[in-house]
Design a binder for these strands. Structure first.
Lengths: 212, 212
DNA sequence: CGTGCGATGTATCGGTTCGATACATCGCGG
DNA sequence: CCGCGATGTATCGAACCGATACATCGCACG
């Protein structure tokens, strides 16, 4: 999962670890708290070993100018390679079971702008199915096993059930939007380098929060 | 976290691993998918080594009766020890930072029936604070960094923000209930074996889901 | 009658991720 | 001048997951 997220971010711009973590937090803030360095750095090394990303020495412009003033351990900027882009495309398109858990779905969704419509649809539907299953499980417990559980546990289940129902509705909207909604084919060719990514995917919005 | 959950469940009844996993899934189904055996069994061994739980041979009633019919690797039933109960009380009362993340809060909440009111209040407020922080983070992104992000990412943030706001409201209700709410004692005695722990939490319910 | 399949049950292995910690630089305000 | 918070790289142990292996039981289906 982290691998996919890193590849995705580096496709938008080259970055060093610290920056990567910040962007990751911004992009996935709705899903997970904050990525740990204990995961980030080892993963970076793994990706580098696999040849999917490469180090780019930090602005060695006039490298001699400030040679070893403080023997500065310069920031290590990572850049995605051609193989890395292939790997990203492959990861983003193939959906395993882990694609539908909370984190996996979040990461995939965060890169929907770089995902083709068929895959988007497939993932949204898979996610919906998974949430529906969880929802049924909670309904079962609240129905059949209610008397076995204390009031607090029941309240927790109710809250969870509510969240499930809400997410299913959200997904329904997105799916409908995706199906009928003509995907204006996000102009993004998915290329790295240029930047200038003012994406405009099929405005997934339109889902509003009605206050009763 | 798993440690706390196991200790809590075994306090209600002695169980073997498989059963423990099922109960865990039922009790925490709203929080997390399902605990893996790769976590469960090692943890059980750890707890046993620490002296907090003990093996109880499966119904050796008439042990000779069916000696080694199939050399059955009998189910291993675990029972909580006195030290284990102390450990549970200690874990449930002390709230570290991990108490307020999704899983940690869920586990603590699931055992609120065995938690004193002051601690319940402390945990609910800590959780609220944490969610409020996450909410502010999301608002920031949606406000200041909106143009940097594509429509899908923004939609994800909106959905997350909505969930945060909803959870804060839920927590507010629970807190108010906890503060003023006198405990009408949910009828469930929930006792295991002898134990006379008919806890009576202040029926956290009363929080209703109004359908617009 | 058997045979296969799903539920029950215990267990391990490799790999990912977390949380804490360490250490160094930079810029800013007191 | 000094401390302190932001920036930045890095590692270690422990927790946890997902896949897998293996064995028993009961029952439905041919």
């Amino acid at each position: 999962m982290l691998e996919l997220a890193i590849l995705g971010l580096l496709q938008e711009a080259s970055m060093h670890g610290y920056e990567l973590r910040k962007e990751l937090t911004a992009k996935l803030g709705a899903i997970r708290a904050a990525i740990s360095y204990g995961s980030l750095y080892p993963t970076l090394r793994r990706l580098q070993a696999a040849g999917w990303i490469a180090e780019a020495a930090e602005t060695p412009a006039t490298a001699e100018e400030v040679p070893a003033l403080t023997s500065r351990r310069g920031r290590v900027v990572y850049t995605i390679t051609a193989e890395g882009k292939e790997r990203f495309a492959q990861l983003i398109a193939q959906a395993g079971p882990e694609t539908y858990d909370d984190t996996g779905f979040g990461v995939h969704f965060a890169f929907f702008a770089r995902t083709d419509q068929a895959t988007r649809l497939r993932i949204l539907e898979g996610r919906r199915r998974k949430i529906e299953e969880r929802r049924e499980g909670l309904r079962d417990v609240l129905g059949r096993a209610a008397e076995r559980l204390d009031a607090y546990t029941l309240e927790l289940q109710r809250h969870g059930l509510d969240a499930c129902e809400r997410e299913v509705r959200w997904l329904e909207e997105l799916i409908a939007n995706e199906r009928s909604g003509r995907a204006p084919a996000d102009p993004r060719p998915g290329t790295a380098g240029g930047r200038g990514d003012n994406d405009s995917p099929p405005t997934p919005g339109t889902s509003r929060k009605e206050r009763p």
